[in-house]
Computed example of a mutant assay.
Amino acid sequence: MKRILVPTDFSEHAEDALKAAAQIAKKNGAEIFLLHLLELPNQMNDAVTNGSSIPEVMLFIKKANEKLQKIKEQPHLQGITISTTVQFEKAFDGILSFNKKNKIDLIVMGSHGSSGIEEILIGSNTEKVVRLSDIPVLVIKKDLDTFNIKNIVFASDFSKEIKKPFLKMIEFAKIFDANLILVMICTPNSFKTTSMGEKTMKNFIADFEVNNYSMHIYNDSNIEKGILNFTNMVGADLIGLCTHGRTGLSHFFNGSISEDLVNHTIKPVITFKI
């Protein structure tokens, strides 16, 4: 994960994401790509396409570049290679197209935290990126003075389709030398005996070289509450999930993780595409 994209609208939430990305970059010797997307009115888009020079457009570009330059000069970004781009494109489309052109390894995005996180899951740009991005997406919920990840909960059904994205989870955990806390959530609708769950998890992890990990079975009334309650119980710093790409946050046990999980946690969440 040497190339990190941080989309910014110059909000506090975007700044929180940039702070986390900076700490990852310093630990991993990574480069940060700071991207601001301009969505212009249709008439301005037509003029830009025709090569016309519109004062308003030029002013937007100038102001955006000035803000990006000011961001680059912040003390906590010193020593990090940072590239800045102002791009004319809708936010969601622009982020995904930028990834492909620049071979990005990780996207770090901000969100509104527990009170407004439903925007991630109901048609927002962040939700679309989480759902459709082929690369890992780290969503930061609040300002973290120190993005020091020591314990990561990775919740899954540990099926075969999870193996490929799990390699990315291992790669991310190694950046921080973090402990992976693997958990299978059992509910009345997706019941597994402890022996069945343990066997599934042991067979899954046997295919990987992982040293710092533990395996757990946790029972709760539903998957979302189980992940949230288990994460709080073990005091983890980050939640890792896999995304399916069709229904938003990944399906577990033939279902989908509902907005409840993200609505009620202020923990950062990293997602990996199946």
Rank of each mutant, 00 (worst) to 15 (best):
G116R: 11
K2T: 10
L38Y: 05
F191H: 14
G197C: 07
M44C: 08
K27P: 01
K273T: 09
G240I: 00
K27C: 12
E39P: 13
N211V: 13
I140P: 00
I205P: 02
N179K: 15
N125D: 09
A20P: 02
K225E: 03
I80W: 06
V130I: 12
E224T: 06
L59Y: 14
K26S: 05
G94I: 00
I107M: 05
I80H: 08
R3F: 07
I82N: 00
D16K: 08
H36Y: 05
K62I: 10
L37K: 00
E89W: 07
S221Q: 14
N65Y: 10
L241Q: 03
E209S: 13
L68H: 01
T231L: 09
K142P: 02
V183N: 01
K72I: 06
F172L: 11
A30D: 04
N28W: 04
N65I: 05
A173E: 02
I227T: 02
S83H: 12
M58A: 12
D9R: 12
V86L: 00
I117C: 14
L35F: 03
G110F: 02
D220F: 06
E259G: 08
M233C: 11
L106P: 00
T187N: 06
I135D: 01
L180W: 06
I175F: 06
V137H: 00
D177Y: 10
S115P: 03
T81K: 14
I205D: 04
K174H: 08
V137L: 01
P268V: 03
K199P: 07
P268I: 05
L40H: 04
M196E: 14
I95Q: 03
P268A: 07
F92C: 07
K2C: 13
H251S: 09
D237Q: 09
R3Q: 10
V48F: 06
V153W: 00
E66D: 13
L261E: 01
I32Y: 05
Q74F: 08
P165G: 04
K72D: 01
D177N: 15
V129H: 02
I80N: 04
R3W: 03
V6P: 03
N50W: 12
S195Q: 15
N125S: 08
E31L: 10
A206P: 05
D177W: 05
N203K: 14
I162V: 15
T193Y: 09
F272K: 01
Q43G: 09
K174M: 09
A236R: 03
K128S: 12
F230C: 00
L167E: 15
K90M: 11
S115N: 14
F208V: 07
I270W: 01
E89V: 07
